[in-house]
Design a protein around this nucleic acid. Structure first.
Lengths: 211, 211
DNA sequence: ATTATGATGTGACTAATGTCACAGAAAATT
DNA sequence: AATTTTCTGTGACATTAGTCACATCATAAT
């Protein structure tokens, strides 16, 4: 399948405007990144922004003390709103982006952004909605953090993560999960054991299967 | 001072584009709302959206079980992004909005939105940035909820709330604060006493003074 | 002034979470 | 095969937060 076809399939909101998708296709190109590549460095200026075609990107903040604050994952069909905003305002990105699953992405130069914003109402609605989607995800996070215990938060995380992978497995160590949820390894180990006893998950080494 | 002058002063990002601010002024009008007025009903369709000139609006979600999930406050110089997005997509608003301090606001009809989005890159950047600002506030919330205890969260809340009021006082009952922070009255009372002993606040009836 | 209501203070207890210490299992390295 | 490293399991304990019960105090209403 041609790149332009994949783009149109993954970004229907943009394909709806033929001029827009044409301009996008003419100005960018496909790139591939392997798991664990850092594609966004905290406090750097962005020159490019992505339209993700496949894979998964993890966006988080790293605190001074080493704490990790997971914000969200970028899925196929999504762009990186933080990159777009930072590029539009010529400021540094306040987050870190790492490839979680091998990624194919259509990369566009920052300088095209003003043009898109000026010419295409559809582009603007796409950005509004991209923001809104992540905003809602983050609100959901606050809700769970505020009103639920760690067990629920952990289980929700596992279910969501496995859905993102189109699989019923999450291949992470207890320590990695603890970091992403802002907890400690021991607590996560204990809660996972509890979930296993409740027959909600099955534990193996660096792998958790959702039942 | 004329409304148009106040608008330009409070919304410099928009005033920067003369045509834009002109079109806005011609299409809306000033309204006033008193404390405790519900200006945004959860699950309703919006017909208008605001540019807030003075006062404070509280945006939150009400859970089925009666829990309240505070999202953020809308300050002078800001619009209601949730209203804008919901209006642009013709969907129901997923949040509730209540006047926290008497508000003066410039109200615009929803039907103007497409026009603004199509014609004014400055309008679009304003919406991007409005979203980004609230996004950052919410991220900060997640950070505090994830890595800090209730005492810190409470103190941060009080400081921020008093700043929003341009005062060093927060006039709320312990119960109200508990609701906004998703905790219980007793816990808040105890933590406030602790903060008082640490000489960070002074307690009176329905009033907390930040020291 | 008396009563009713709402707001606050606090002890006692329980539950949830975090921390420390250490042990055993699996995988990677030599 | 031996050693090292990483990952996981778990007991013991401390801290934090939530719940229940009840007392006190301030203000509003009668």
């Amino acid at each position: 399948m041609k790149v332009s076809e994949i783009l149109k399939e993954k970004f229907p909101q943009l394909a709806f405007a033929p001029d827009l998708i044409e301009e996008i296709i003419e100005n960018g190109s496909v790139h591939r990144y392997e798991k664990d590549t850092v594609i966004l460095k905290e406090n750097s200026y962005v020159k490019y922004f992505p339209l993700v075609l496949s894979g998964l990107v993890k966006i988080y903040k790293e605190e001074e003390n080493g704490n990790e604050l997971l914000l969200y994952y970028i899925k196929p069909g999504e762009t990186c709103i933080v990159s777009v905003i930072s590029a539009e305002n010529d400021v540094k990105v306040p987050v870190k982006g790492v490839i979680e699953e091998d990624v194919e992405t259509f990369i566009l130069p920052k300088k095209i952004l003003y043009d898109l914003r000026k010419k295409y109402p559809e582009w603007n609605l796409f950005i509004y909605n991209s923001f809104n989607d992540k905003f809602e995800e983050v609100i959901e996070m606050i809700k769970v953090v505020t009103f639920s215990n760690k067990e629920k938060r952990l289980y929700d995380f596992l279910v969501k993560k496995s859905e993102l992978n189109n699989s019923n497995e999450v291949c992470k160590s207890h320590q990695e999960i603890a970091n992403e949820l802002g907890s400690s390894r021991e607590v996560i180990s204990r809660l996972l054991k509890k979930l296993e006893k409740e027959e909600k998950v099955k534990l193996s080494l660096k792998k958790i299967t959702i039942l």
